[in-house]
Amino acid sequence: MIKEFEGRNEEEAIKNAIEFLGLTKSDIDVEIVEKEKGGFLFKGGKVKIRVHYDENDEEYNATGDPEKRIISFVSGLIDRMGLEVEVKVHGRRENRLELDLVSPDSGIIIGKQGKTLEAIQLLTNIVVGRVASDDYKVVIDSEGYKKRRERNIEQIARRVASQVRKSKGSRLLEPMNPFERRIVHTTLSSYKDIETISEGEGLYKQVRIMYRGDIDRY
């Protein structure tokens, strides 16, 4: 197989090729197709390379080792965000890979209410669909944020539940993603006098916690 790649210099072009193909430098033969020298003010150089590689290698990596490609996608992504990161495998289950992003900039990687982390996870899972089977899932956390958030949501759910129990009314929580809403629903599922429903549209819906009284619903 032959594929072309670009970069500002030869080194970057090769790096792009290796990352994209999920191969190592020794697996590929590189031929330089085009070389534009940079220099004038801000204009950078450009190098186009043609990479020759064994298709079997790619296939092996695509089906046999999606993990390597996923990790290289994630570290390539965060690297280009201008942040330092070490991508660690936190756990492996059947069809499921858990990654932990260790970084001095983990606050930025996580983002407000974990939104950046969610975005990274979403894109990664779409890219995963291209290198692994459809039911393969990647879960990405950074410095234990999701565990902390989980516990935090459980606490909020219980606190709000006891408030509506007193007021005999209902309260709407802040917008949450599906994973976070599930925590609220399951935490309060054993509270027979409390009901929880999701309201709104899109990915980030709000959970309403309602007092249902002592009515025996079953």
């Binding site: 280009r80 965000m81 969610e118």
Partner: peptide, 22 residues
Amino acid sequence: IGKHGRIAKAIRTILSAAATKT
């Protein structure tokens, strides 16, 4: 872009995170 713009939104979220430092 993705369904309901989900992917575009994720790309924008990542971009603004990358711009935090600058």
